[in-house]
C-alpha cells in the first residue's frame, strides 16, 4: 500500500467521522441527503461481499467492517432516531436515486471483469459509488447555505477521491501488471462531480466566508 492510497482511506474515514460528529453533536441531519447515505451503505454491502471469500490484510478487513457498520448506522439514525429524523430535509431531497441504482446495475451486467455473482456486485458498487454523491450535491445546491460540518464532510469525500487517483497513477508506474480500468474510469467520473463543489469551497475558504452554492 502506498502513501496516497492510505491518505485517501484516511480522508474517507475522516469524512464519515465528520458526518457522525455532525449528527451526534448537533442532533441534526439537516443538509445531509438520506438518499446518498442509503446508496453508500449499499455500495459497501455490495462491494465487500468478498469479506467472506478473500483475505487481503487485517487493515482491509477492519476498514471494510468500519465502512459497513458506520454507513448503515448513519442511515438507521436518519430514519429511526426520534430527534435526528425531524431535521431531515425531506422536501429538498427528491433526487430519483432509483434511476442511479438501475443504471449502475445494468452497466454492471454489461461491463464487468468476470460474469460471476461477486464480480457483478463489485462492478455495481464501483459504478454506484461514482454517482452516489449526486443527491447530496443537489440537496446542497437547493438549500443554498451549507453549514461548516456538512461542507467539510463533502470536502473530505472529494479529497479521498483525489488521493485515490494519485494512488492509481503511482501504481501504474510502480507495478508491472496494474490494469483496473473499471475502477479508474469510474473514479475519474466520480472525482469530476466534485470539481464544482471544490471550486466554491475554495472561494469560501479564500475569502473566509460561509460556503454558499449558487442556485
Amino acid at each position: 500500500m502506498n502513501i496516497f492510497r492510505f491518505a485517501g482511506d484516511m480522508m474517507h474515514l475522516t469524512s464519515i467521522l465528520v458526518l457522525l460528529l455532525k449528527i451526534y453533536a448537533t442532533k441534526s441531519c439537516s443538509g445531509i441527503s438520506l438518499k446518498t447515505q442509503e446508496l453508500y451503505a449499499l455500495v459497501f454491502l455490495a462491494r465487500y461481499l468478498d469479506l467472506f471469500t478473500d483475505f487481503i490484510s487485517v487493515y482491509n478487513t477492519i476498514m471494510k467492517l468500519v465502512f459497513i457498520v458506520s454507513s448503515t448506522a448513519i442511515v438507521w439514525c436518519m430514519k429511526r432516531d426520534r430527534v435526528v429524523r425531524r431535521s431531515y430535509d425531506k422536501q429538498l431531497d427528491t433526487f430519483r436515486h432509483y434511476f442511479l441504482l438501475a443504471a449502475s446495475f445494468a452497466l454492471a451486467l454489461l461491463v464487468n471483469e468476470k460474469f460471476t455473482f461477486q464480480e457483478i456486485f463489485w462492478a455495481f458498487s464501483i459504478y454506484l459509488e461514482a454517482v452516489a454523491i449526486l443527491p447530496q450535491l443537489v440537496l446542497l445546491q437547493r438549500s443554498g447555505n451549507v453549514d461548516n460540518l456538512t461542507g467539510q464532510y463533502v470536502f473530505f469525500l472529494g479529497a479521498y477521491r483525489a488521493f485515490y487517483i494519485l494512488n492509481w497513477i503511482y501504481r501504474y508506474f510502480t507495478e508491472t501488471h496494474f490494469s483496473r480500468w473499471i475502477a479508474c474510469i469510474s473514479g475519474l467520473v466520480q472525482t469530476a462531480l466534485y470539481a464544482d463543489f471544490f471550486y466554491y469551497y475554495y472561494i469560501s475558504w479564500k475569502n473566509n466566508t460561509k460556503l454558499k452554492l449558487p442556485a
Binding site: R47, D50, D54, I56, N60, M63, E113, K114, H177
Partner: peptide
C-alpha cells in the same frame, strides 16, 4: 502476488 480478480482496494 494477488490474482487479477482479487480487489485489494477499498
Amino acid at each position: 502476488p494477488l490474482e487479477q480478480h482479487m480487489h485489494d482496494e477499498l
